[in-house]
């Protein structure tokens, strides 16, 4: 039955491509989360009226974030080839796409982190200062835990954007479901392969969305 609908699909290759997509997405989501939170914290804390108020640092960080957010992902992939080569030592396989994925998504996520941190009640920060909290205690015990539901729902949105970015990674030979759909489906006129790859990527997206929503709900005690 399945073989009738998808006569041309090589299931082993589809599975490998799915794993490549999951690998690229998972690693890049992890680093985007870390880097995005760091950048978002800098953006938030150096803003006017906050703990590390500093117009210069804020301006430079915001400029960097805006710049990388504006470059179309497919161009970023190509632009970062020399950097990736130096960093990873190869341009082959799914790892080659990681720098571009992270540099493309982290600035985007950083803005979401900044917005999430701005939503933290100023009164709570004031209360923590009144108790004699250090800056790192304010960051790790107040700012991040209090904004965690927004940080998680933000990384969920970013993760889904990242999954669709991975589909473009085939351009530089990184593999994944997008590459699979393009080369084995589109170029060989095998529409059933394209459809199978689409379904696989949708399943990955749905799973990420469900996990993200659940986590947000569990964490949100407001």
């Amino acid at each position: 039955m399945i073989d009738q609908i998808f006569p041309n699909v090589n299931w082993v290759r589809l599975w490998d491509a799915t794993l490549e997509t999951i690998y690229m997405s998972a690693v890049s989501v992890f680093f985007t989360f870390i880097l995005g939170i760091a950048l978002g914290l800098v953006l938030f804390l150096t803003a006017k009226g906050n703990l590390w108020q500093n117009a210069a640092v804020n301006g430079v960080t915001a400029g960097f974030v805006n710049l990388f957010r504006s470059i179309p992902f497919i161009i970023l992939l190509v632009l970062l080839i020399p950097f990736t080569n130096a960093l990873i030592g190869t341009m082959l396989g799914p790892s080659a796409a990681l720098p571009a994925l992270i540099f493309g998504a982290a600035p985007f996520y950083a803005r979401m982190v900044e917005i999430a941190l701005r939503e933290v009640d100023k009164g709570v920060i004031e209360a923590s200062r009144s108790m004699g909290a250090t800056q790192s205690q304010i960051i790790f015990k107040v700012l991040l835990p209090e904004s965690m539901p927004a940080l998680i729902s933000g990384i969920t949105v970013t993760a889904i954007a990242l999954i669709s970015y991975t589909a473009m990674a085939g351009v530089i030979g990184a593999g994944g479901l997008g590459d699979f759909a393009y080369r084995e489906g589109f170029q060989r006129y095998n529409d059933d392969v394209t459809l199978a790859a689409t379904i696989a990527i949708l399943i990955v997206v749905f799973i990420v969305q469900i996990i993200g929503d659940r986590l947000t709900r569990v964490l949100d005690k407001r």
């Binding site: 009164g123 209360a127 835990p145 964490l219 005690k221």
Partner: peptide, 14 residues
């Protein structure tokens, strides 16, 4: 020096 506030300023996540 303890301090209490009009809007309580509790951490809702705790």
């Amino acid at each position: 020096i303890g301090m209490i506030f009009q809007h309580f300023n509790l951490l809702w996540s705790r």
